[in-house]
């Protein structure tokens, strides 16, 4: 089973040289730690920055320089600053190659719910609805089951939707799954170290497609 760092490490392998990538809050933020230094990748932060660098050293923090999670960050040589409209302009225009974000539920046709639990405090969708509506390539990083032990990979989402038909890949503590087109279901691609196919079947409520031998992931 993978911990959060493990999920982030596995997702980092999906990033290709030359990609512009938007990382959501939570596990997706950790992905930045595992992008190989040899790779030319630019991180986009939707509050208006391309070329997000690491957190600052103590004493170097700048209140004017934060990421979308409101954390103090640094810029890199070649960074660019822009306003919020242009930030979502480049997202809408599909200039960002990969979006990685968290989710509460994903359905077998790629719908995602990650912004609202009715009856509980609603904090808002932030930029998530814009990102999922426009991104070509969306990877979800999440736990396979919720705290109540219920699967988060469902035939249909039960929570209010963030976007429809958009998730392409899911990485959980148990597995890597592709979301097949046209409601084809979740195709099991890899197992997490030490996890059996049976355990993944048990934790998946939506249609699970298993073809042949499923390899264990290499981190």
């Amino acid at each position: 089973m993978l911990d959060k760092q493990g999920i982030a490490k596995r997702i980092a392998k999906e990033i290709k040289d030359g990609y512009y990538v938007n990382l959501g809050i939570g596990i997706p933020t950790l992905v930045a730690n595992y992008i190989p230094e040899t790779m030319d990748v630019v991180l986009q932060s939707e509050n208006g920055l391309l070329g997000m660098g690491p957190f600052p050293f103590e004493g170097d923090e700048d209140a004017d320089t934060i990421n979308a999670g409101k954390q103090t960050i640094t810029m890199l040589p070649g960074s660019a600053i822009f306003d919020s409209a242009m930030s979502f302009g480049m997202i809408r225009a599909k200039k960002v190659n990969l979006t990685i974000l968290g989710a509460m539920e994903v359905s077998e046709n790629g719908d995602i719910a990650n912004w609202k639990i009715p009856g509980k405090m609603v904090k808002g969708m932030g930029g998530a609805m814009d990102l999922v509506a426009s991104a070509e390539n969306i990877i979800v990083a999440m736990q396979h089951v919720n705290k109540a032990g219920e699967s988060k990979l469902l035939p249909q989402c039960t929570l209010p939707l963030t976007g429809i038909n958009c998730v392409k890949k899911i990485v959980t503590e148990l597995a890597v799954l592709d979301v097949l087109p046209n409601g084809g279901g979740f195709k099991l691609i890899e197992r997490a170290p030490g996890i059996s196919v049976e355990e993944i079947i048990k934790a998946t409520a939506g249609r699970l497609v298993i073809e042949g031998e499923i390899p264990e992931m290499i981190l």
Binding site: E46, S84, A85, G89, G127, M129, D130, A133, S134, G163
Partner: peptide, 29 residues
Amino acid sequence: PQGTLATRCMAAGYGMPAIFTPAGIGTEI
């Protein structure tokens, strides 16, 4: 949605009455 918020501001500043965005399609928005 954050992009909708920003772009509705932008539209006002550019003298455009409305914009079209995919953000929120298929949702309660």
